[in-house]
């Protein structure tokens, strides 16, 4: 795993400046234990998803079930059309959303990073304020459905997450701290316009922060299920996260609303829930791809944040 971190490891690169052996061993031991603590529950989910259902009901969740069974996955993939379609939606939303989010946020962050721009402060506050104050779900919904008429539209899965104030601030900090103003000055003397400077000089110098933000936005888009819940009524346009998660929501709803559950039953409704093993298989199908993809692009995170998170 080659990465920027390996090239730039301040304390470790200096042989005189290292920890004593016991301390180092202690740290290793500690992290091995902690990593186990994090990974064990995830393994548990995988094991339950490939267990035999009746074994799970009888013995509870076990790391080593007495009987294995792939029935949960067979059940889920019986209707593969919907899963494939939802994966398609998720991939489109994630790719398109991340790209537009990146472009729009960078375009916003650059001007407010320029100390010579007189309105940099108010526009910084304009974006920061949105982190502290919100109008609530209903008015927000009204804007999207009545004003923009985006109900059941795939754009409703993209637009609300395009701007994350946090990442705009991170980008701004990066631009302030790492783009040498001398470079900008000389470009201006050469007669380059602001847009040219931004495209030709600023963006190429900012790849680390762009990569980091891109990856965090990828996670955000992939993991989102709430927008599907709110805006989409047709299964054709739901993301794979929501497809998996809504079953969990159904179970939660009835488990936590015993009044409603009793009333529904009294009115003649019956419930059939997927079994425990299917629930866990759903978790794996929903988060699986991104978990496996994560280590491959995680290496970019650190470099981007390295310079980006330092406040200017």
């Amino acid at each position: 795993m080659e990465s920027i971190v390996a090239e730039k490891a301040p304390s470790a690169s200096n042989p005189q400046n290292k920890l004593s052996l016991p301390a180092s061993a202690g740290i290793h031991l500690f992290f091995i234990l902690y990593s186990l603590f994090c990974i064990i529950p995830v393994i548990l989910i995988i094991m339950v998803s490939i267990s035999d259902e009746s074994t799970v009901v009888r013995e509870g969740y076990q790391f080593f079930p007495s009987k294995f069974d792939m029935g949960a996955y067979e059940f889920l993939f019986k209707d593969a059309r919907q899963i494939i379609r939802s994966y398609g939606i998720s991939i489109f939303v994630t790719v398109f959303g991340t790209l537009s989010s990146l472009i729009i946020m960078a375009l916003y962050a650059y001007p407010i990073s320029r100390s010579d721009f007189p309105h940099a402060k108010p526009f910084t506050f304009f974006v920061f304020f949105t982190m502290l104050f919100g109008g609530g779900l209903v008015p927000w919904y009204l804007v999207y459905v009545q004003m923009l008429e985006l109900k059941d539209n795939i754009m409703a899965l993209i637009l609300p997450l395009v701007i994350s104030a946090f990442f705009v601030l991170i980008m701004r900090t990066f631009f302030i701290t790492t783009i040498p103003s001398a470079v900008l000055e000389s470009a201006k003397i050469d007669g380059a316009g602001e847009l040219t400077i931004f495209m030709r000089i600023v963006l190429p110098l900012s790849l680390p922060v762009l990569a980091t933000v891109a990856l965090f936005q990828t996670l955000t888009y992939w993991n989102d299920w709430f927008l599907s819940l709110v805006f989409i009524t047709k299964d054709a346009n739901i993301t794979v996260q929501y497809l998996m998660y809504k079953t969990m929501l159904n179970i939660q709803f009835l488990a936590n609303n015993s009044t409603a559950a009793a009333a529904i039953q009294a009115a003649g409704g019956t419930f059939r829930f997927p079994s425990e093993t299917v629930r866990m298989a759903m978790v794996i199908i929903g988060v699986g791809p991104i978990i496996f993809a994560y280590p491959f692009f995680q290496k970019y995170f650190v470099k981007g944040l390295t310079v980006g998170a330092v406040k200017g």
């Binding site: 949105t130 008015p139 927000w140 804007v143 637009l159 609300p160 395009v162």
Partner: peptide, 8 residues
């Protein structure tokens, strides 16, 4: 996305 809904 943020300012109009604040009137809510």
């Amino acid at each position: 996305n943020n300012y109009i809904p604040m009137f809510g």
